[in-house]
Lab assay of single mutants.
Amino acid sequence: EPLWIRPDAPSRCTWQLGRPASESPHHHTAPAKSPKILPDILKKIGDTPMVRINKIGKKFGLKCELLAKCEFFNAGGSVKDRISLRMIEDAERDGTLKPGDTIIEPTSGNTGIGLALAAAVRGYRCIIVMPEKMSSEKVDVLRALGAEIVRTPTNARFDSPESHVGVAWRLKNEIPNSHILDQYRNASNPLAHYDTTADEILQQCDGKLDMLVASVGTGGTITGIARKLKEKCPGCRIIGVDPEGSILAEPEELNQTEQTTYEVEGIGYDFIPTVLDRTVVDKWFKSNDEEAFTFARMLIAQEGLLCGGSAGSTVAVAVKAAQELQEGQRCVVILPDSVRNYMTKFLSDRWMLQKGFLKEEDLTEKKPWWWHLRVQELGLSAPLTVLPTITCGHTIEILREKGFDQAPVVDEAGVILGMVTLGNMLSSLLAGKVQPSDQVGKVIYKQFKQIRLTDTLGRLSHILEMDHFALVVHEQIQYHSTGKSSQRQMVFGVVTAIDLLNFVAAQERDQK
């Protein structure tokens, strides 16, 4: 057995438009009618409502009807409940999964919650491996369901041993009777949507819809739904939504950006999952974080739909894509998950301010006199920076000697690579993860907040409520011999709460 199987392995699926269902090699399930009293909570997966979006479509000038398939009504709160249950049931049916076995899954959280929910009911041990950027709410729900959680670096490539995929496979090879159901490759993922989600949409719309818009992560949702719609409703256009920084969209030119990270969760990847059939997507749109969270908040405030950030991405694209539809036509959007997962993220004004998705003037509360002053007023001194090749031991000596707790790590040209902190280095040394002679590049981390000289002290204040420091950066445009230009970030300084307090105190003292 291989040590790991690539999540982007070539698909062996034989589905073709027009091929009889009787030739399918898979076990198919028909939607079942729910009894009045459910035998367990797993029976509350599927049969989610279709809700008309009344205000947002009109606000953006849509002539067509805009409908939302509300997947956050599933038992675990997301569309991923469907595939989690289906993968477990299919693994039980073919004898792969037996009582007492362990389920391991690399996930952005929602599939993990679905699997942990099913594992709690069915009696399996469950280990979820997820990147650090995923919300604390997801972690809390997983723990409450009895799952064990392993976190991995957000910026690790999918084929790196440190990625959530790599760590999951390492655990599988170490733990007896453990299984990775593997949402990236498992046919049960798109089949769950082909058999149930798509049929529900067709039934709820009486077979009449002209466009379907869905955000894409593993691709199982859009693949399964689109294949069924292509068979039953061939005139329906399928629109895929991919965040900026991901590479799922086609044509490839759409993916060209210097951005590699994004805040919206559960969609987009740096590889093409095996289950994603991009041939059934008629057109791709890219979405960005700001519009995703703005539209998610709009869905909550104006439509009462308590959905997550990827739902915002989907609707932001839908109001663009559906401009081509006329009166009497219908566009369906998939709202994948609930706001429950993001209470401390985009639902929080403070978080939105820190990330730059909300401006101070958007909030009406009274601010102190210094709130709208610029960061450049602080008069920061030149920063202490270190090269990635310097040793951890030497870096600790320098920081202690100069009285700093942290320093930016830059390359020879001064471009920011990340940050090192005294606390992080000492804990890594004590844990045996690094040696004093190791290069400081081994303990770089990139989960820090950046701020510009033109940003306000109010925004800085919000950042420092949650973080010990902020890195002050400025952009530099560099022209190359080819005539092309590129933008790079340079370090201007490091600012802490002490710097802000000293500035405010000094100004008030001078005024007296």
Rank of each mutant, 00 (worst) to 15 (best):
Q435K: 15
E258M: 09
R459E: 07
D277S: 03
V473H: 09
Y479Q: 10
L471K: 06
L299I: 09
V494N: 04
E252N: 13
A505E: 12
V440A: 09
T385I: 15
I300D: 00
Q439Y: 15
D438H: 09
K367W: 15
S486W: 10
L422E: 12
S481V: 12
Q450H: 09
L299C: 04
F469E: 15
E360D: 14
G493R: 09
E365V: 14
I238A: 02
R509Y: 09
N424T: 04
G308A: 04
N288L: 12
T314V: 13
H372S: 12
T274A: 03
Q478N: 15
V339G: 08
N502S: 14
T274G: 02
A321P: 10
S287Y: 02
K355H: 13
S486D: 06
S348Y: 04
G423A: 07
P368Q: 06
H394D: 11
K320H: 04
M466Q: 13
Q439K: 11
W284N: 00
V281G: 02
L254P: 03
E377Q: 11
E258G: 15
M343Q: 01
L399W: 06
E265A: 01
G240K: 08
G423W: 14
L335Y: 06
W371C: 08
I238D: 05
R278G: 07
L353Q: 10
L378M: 10
A301D: 11
G432P: 06
I272L: 07
I477E: 09
L248R: 00
V491M: 14
Q511R: 13
V315N: 07
N424W: 12
E365W: 15
T279L: 15
L358M: 12
Q478C: 15
E475N: 11
V443K: 10
V241Y: 04
Q450C: 13
S428F: 13
L325P: 00
P251R: 01
Y479K: 12
L358G: 05
V386K: 06
A322D: 03
M343K: 06
H468I: 14
D438A: 05
P336G: 05
A301H: 09
C392W: 11
K484H: 11
K359Q: 15
K320V: 05
A322F: 01
F404G: 03
T385H: 07
K366V: 15
K283T: 03
A301F: 15
P251V: 07
L325C: 04
V332M: 12
R374S: 12
P383R: 06
M343G: 02
L335H: 00
I239E: 04
T391G: 06
T385V: 03
S338K: 08
S428R: 06
S246A: 06
P273A: 04
M419H: 12
E252M: 13
P436H: 15
E263M: 07
S338V: 07
L501A: 05
A505D: 14
M425N: 08
D455R: 05
R297D: 02
V375G: 06
M425S: 03
E291W: 06
Q323A: 10
G309L: 00
K402V: 14
Q511I: 11
T344C: 06
F293S: 00
V386H: 05
E252S: 11
G423T: 07
S485N: 09
L276Q: 01
L426Y: 12
R297Q: 04
L358I: 03
L306N: 01
P273F: 00
V332R: 00
F285A: 13
T261D: 04
Q323N: 07
G458I: 08
V280M: 12
N502C: 10
E258S: 11
A382M: 11
R330V: 13
Q406P: 03
F295C: 11
S338E: 08
Y269C: 01
V420F: 15
A505N: 09
L363H: 13
H462G: 15
E508C: 12
E263G: 05
L384K: 12
I300S: 04
M352D: 04
V504S: 08
T261F: 11
Q476F: 15
K286I: 01
L460A: 06
E244L: 04
E465S: 13
G393V: 13
N288A: 13
P436L: 15
S348N: 13
Y479M: 14
A470Y: 04
K512I: 05
T294E: 12
L429V: 13
W370F: 14
W284D: 00
A505R: 04
L384Y: 07
P436V: 15
I390H: 08
V491S: 03
P243F: 02
L325A: 03
A470K: 06
L464D: 06
K367L: 14
L378D: 02
D510V: 15
E360K: 14
L501P: 03
E291C: 15
S310K: 03
V415Q: 13
T314Q: 12
W371P: 09
I272R: 05
T391E: 09
F492D: 11
F469L: 13
I477K: 04
W371D: 09
G483L: 12
P273Y: 00
H480W: 07
K484N: 12
E263I: 04
G393W: 11
K283I: 07
V472N: 06
V443D: 10
G266T: 01
H474L: 08
L347K: 05
A407D: 04
M490Q: 15
L363V: 10
Q376L: 15
M466L: 14
P436N: 04
H372K: 05
K359D: 03
I272N: 03
D242R: 02
T344M: 04
S481K: 12
V333S: 07
V494Y: 03
L347Y: 07
L457V: 12
V495S: 14
E303P: 03
P336H: 04
A497G: 11
R350Y: 11
K367E: 14
D362T: 11
E377I: 08
R278T: 05
E258C: 15
A316G: 10
E377H: 06
T496R: 03
Q489G: 05
G309M: 00
D362V: 13
L426P: 03
Q406E: 11
L422F: 12
V386T: 11
V315P: 06
Q507I: 13
F492H: 13
V472Q: 15
G266F: 02
S246D: 03
G312C: 01
L387H: 05
K320D: 05
H468P: 15
L387W: 13
N288W: 12
K345D: 01
I239V: 05
W284H: 01
K320R: 05
L299R: 03
S428W: 13
G309N: 03
W369I: 08
N424G: 14
E265D: 05
K366D: 15
L457I: 15
A321F: 06
E475A: 06
E377N: 05
I239Q: 04
A322H: 01
V491G: 14
I272Q: 07
K484A: 05
Q489L: 13
Q487C: 13
Y262L: 03
A497V: 15
M466N: 04
D337G: 00
F271M: 05
L417R: 12
V409L: 07
R459I: 13
V315R: 06
G328D: 15
G423L: 09
W370G: 03
H468D: 09
M298Y: 11
S338Y: 06
D277Y: 02
Y445S: 09
D510Y: 12
A249I: 05
G441P: 05
I498H: 08
Q439D: 09
M490S: 14
A506W: 09
D455G: 06
K366F: 07
V264S: 00
R452N: 15
R278E: 02
E508Y: 10
F271A: 01
A322C: 08
T261W: 12
W351L: 02
E397F: 14
F285P: 03
D411A: 15
V440S: 15
K286G: 00
D337M: 01
I390E: 06
M343R: 07
Y342A: 02
F448G: 12
P436G: 12
T257H: 03
L457T: 04
A316Y: 14
Y269G: 02
A382N: 11
R374I: 15
R340I: 03
K433H: 14
Y342S: 02
I444L: 11
A321K: 05
K449W: 14
V415W: 14
E475T: 04
V315W: 02
W370E: 01
F503Q: 04
H372W: 15
W351P: 05
F503E: 02
S427W: 09
G483C: 15
Q326C: 11
M425V: 15
S437V: 15
Q326M: 15
G483E: 15
L306E: 00
M343S: 00
R459G: 12
E290P: 14
R452Q: 03
W284P: 00
C392I: 15
P388D: 04
S486C: 15
T482I: 13
V319I: 14
H474F: 10
M352Y: 06
G266S: 01
G441V: 07
L464E: 06
E361R: 15
V472F: 10
F448W: 13
V375A: 13
E252I: 05
A321D: 11
G423M: 06
E290Y: 13
E291G: 06
E250I: 10
A321V: 15
G268C: 01
I451W: 05
V491L: 15
M425C: 11
Q511D: 11
T456I: 08
V333I: 13
P388K: 10
